[in-house]
């Protein structure tokens, strides 16, 4: 199986590569459109600030490529948020796969949310064998609103979409590569989609 992690200069991608290695798979880091198109599975990572990440995507023309992909694509953290319609962070227009807005947490909670929280209302094969209320590691100041495309929700001041799916596109707000054994199970499930 050919796994490509999109390398557009945003954040900690080594950890995702290592997580696949622990599962026994070699994932390739690439920003080459042909290589990404030819992959069986594509990981769209992202850590950092939305508008500068989107700028980097545009500079490498990957913003046009990603929505045309037909194999399973998994957006992680900011990667998931960039697959949404728009985000309040830097007033950034997203790739528009998921029909949902990304908003900043209100100051009634500490921002960023940082740490382990539970995922509920699990609705996809991505979560096969994962128990309701499993703990995942999250670090984020912006969240996708709960919506029809939500396949998991998390509570932090309010219930929001901590995972999304539309067709072959999946997105998770949490970091499966940093979420212990359960997180690795989710990555394994993604490879089996």
């Amino acid at each position: 199986m050919k796994i490509v992690i999109i390398d557009y200069g945003a954040g900690n991608i080594k950890s995702i590569q290592f997580a696949f290695k622990r599962l026994g798979y070699d994932a390739i880091l690439s920003n080459n459109p042909e290589e990404i198109k030819a992959a069986d599975k594509v990981i769209f990572p992202g850590v950092g600030e939305a508008s500068s990440a989107m700028q980097m995507l545009k500079e490498s023309t990957l913003d046009a490529l990603i929505p045309t992909l037909t194999q399973p694509v998994l957006g992680i953290c900011l990667g998931m948020q960039l697959l949404c319609k728009a985000t309040e962070e830097g007033n950034t227009t997203g790739l528009g796969i998921f029909d949902v807005q990304v908003k900043r947490f209100e100051n009634t909670v500490k921002v960023p949310q940082m740490g382990w929280n539970t995922i509920s209302d699990l609705k996809s094969d991505l979560f096969k064998g994962i128990k309701n209320q499993e703990f995942m590691y999250l670090v984020h100041s912006y969240y996708a609103e709960n919506c029809n495309e939500a396949i998991a929700t998390t509570n932090y001041g309010l219930a929001y979409a901590s995972a999304l799916q539309k067709d072959n596109f999946y997105g998770v707000q949490f970091h499966p590569e940093k979420s212990s054994i359960a997180g690795e199970e989710i990555l394994k499930n993604f490879l089996n989609l």
Partner: peptide, 11 residues
């Protein structure tokens, strides 16, 4: 750091 990232599945 590289070795820790390789072997450890928590942040």
């Amino acid at each position: 750091v590289l070795k820790v990232a390789e072997h450890v599945n928590i942040p």
